[in-house]
Simulated assay, not measured.
Amino acid sequence: MNRFLLTHATVVLSDQVCSDLAILVQGETIAAIDPDGTAGAVEIDLSGRMLMPGLVDLHCDALEKEVEPRPGVHFPLDLACAQADKRNAAAGITTVFHALSFANHELGVRNNAFASDIARAIHAWQAHALIDNRVHARYEVTDETASPYLSALLGEGVVHLLSFMDHSPGQGQFRDVEAYRNYLAKTYKTGEAALDDILQRKAESARGALSRMEALAAAARDRGVAIASHDDDSPSKIAAVDALGAVISEFPINLETAAAARAQGLATLFGAPNVLRGKSQSGNMRALDAVLAGVADCLCGDYSPAALLPSVMRLPELAGISLPAAIALVTRNPARAAGLADRGEIAAGNRADLIAVRQCAGLPQVERVWSAGRPALSAHFAPA
C-alpha cells in the first residue's frame, strides 16, 4: 500500500496555517497529521512549499475549447479530455466539474448530441485520469429538446451536477437584447440572420420550461445529483430554484440576490477570473465585492482553471480575510456544496487530494499534486 510522509511544509489547515507540519498518507487517504509512528513511510521533503488541499472546481467550461479550439474545428474527444485533465492538475485542481452546455439553439459543442458525447467521453477517460473528472450538465431551459439527452445521462450516472440556466435577453446575465446578440456574434462568429433565428426560437421555447425543469430536478434528486441555478437576478428567482431543490446559486448578479441565496441555504459561486480581472465580463457584480460583503461561498475556474489558485492567494490582501478562509472558497466549500464530504480539507480520514505550492516571483506555482494519494504531477520551479 502507498505510504508516504510529507514533511517540512507550511500546511494550510481549515482554521490555521502551521509551519513544519508532517502529513502521513496511506493508500488513498490522509492517515494522520503530525503522526507519532511513521515506520515504513517514504519521506518527501516539502521545505519551502505550502501544502494545501487539492482545489475543487464546480464550474469550468474550458474543456469545450479543448474540443473546439476554433469554430467548427473539432479535436478527438479522448485527446481533449486528456489535455484538460493535465491542465487541471497543473493548476492544482484535483476535482473538476466540466461544465457542458445543453443548448441546442446555440452552435458547436453546445449541440445536445455533441454535449452528450463529450459527457460520456469524460466518464470513459476517468479510468486513465490524473485527477477526479466529473460532469456538470448545464441545461438551457428554453431548449425544449434537451430533456431526453439529460435524462439518459442522469440514468447512466454520467452527470454529477445539474444546473439550470436561462440566457434569454432581458433578465439574468444579459439584461438587454443587444448584449446577448453581441455575445453570440463574438462566440460563434455567425451572421445577423442566424442570430435572429436563435432569439426567436428561444422566445418560443420558453413556454413549458418550468415543467421540464421540474422533471429533470426530480430525476437529479433521485440520483443524489446536486442542483444549481445560473445567473440568478432576484430573491424571487432564488425562491423559485430553491423549490426545485437547488443547493448552489452560480454567479448571482447582485448583492441582494447573493444574500437571499445564502439566507435560503444555497451556496453562492463566483468566478475566479472575475477576482483576477477585477470585474465581470458581462458587467455584473464583482466577485471581490461579494467576498467583501461576506456573501461568497465558492469560487470557480469558469473559463480559466489557472485563475483559481492565484485569485485566492490574493484575497487575504484584497479582502482582509485569512488564508484558510480564502483557500476554503476553492476547496472545502465547493466540495460540501456538491455533497463531497471526503475532500477539500487536510484532515485525518479524508481523501488524500493535496497540492504543494511554491512562490515564484510573487506567483503561486503548483509543484506537486496527489490525487487520492496517487502522484498526479511533479514539477520544479526555482525559488522566489
Rank of each mutant, 00 (worst) to 15 (best):
V12Q: 06
S14W: 02
Q16N: 13
V17A: 11
L21T: 15
V25R: 02
G27K: 02
E28M: 13
E43P: 00
D45L: 03
L51K: 05
G54L: 03
D57P: 05
L58K: 05
C60I: 09
V67H: 06
E68P: 00
R70G: 09
H74M: 14
L77P: 13
L79F: 10
Q83W: 08
A90H: 05
T94V: 14
F97R: 06
A99S: 10
G108Q: 11
A113C: 08
A119I: 03
A121T: 07
A127L: 12
H136P: 02
Y139K: 08
Y149G: 12
Y149H: 13
S151D: 13
A152F: 07
A152I: 09
L154E: 08
L154T: 11
L161I: 00
Y188F: 11
Y188D: 09
E192M: 07
A194G: 03
D197C: 10
A203L: 12
G208T: 15
G208C: 10
L210H: 12
S211M: 12
R212C: 14
R212T: 15
A218W: 02
D222Q: 12
G224D: 05
A228T: 12
K237F: 09
V241M: 10
D242Y: 13
A246C: 13
V247N: 05
S249M: 09
E250T: 15
N254E: 13
A258M: 09
A259S: 11
A261L: 07
Q264C: 05
P273I: 15
N274Y: 02
V275F: 02
L288M: 07
V295N: 02
G301I: 07
S311Y: 02
V312P: 00
R314Y: 11
N333M: 08
R336D: 10
D342R: 04
D353N: 09
L354C: 03
A356S: 04
A361H: 09
V366D: 08
E367D: 08
P383D: 05
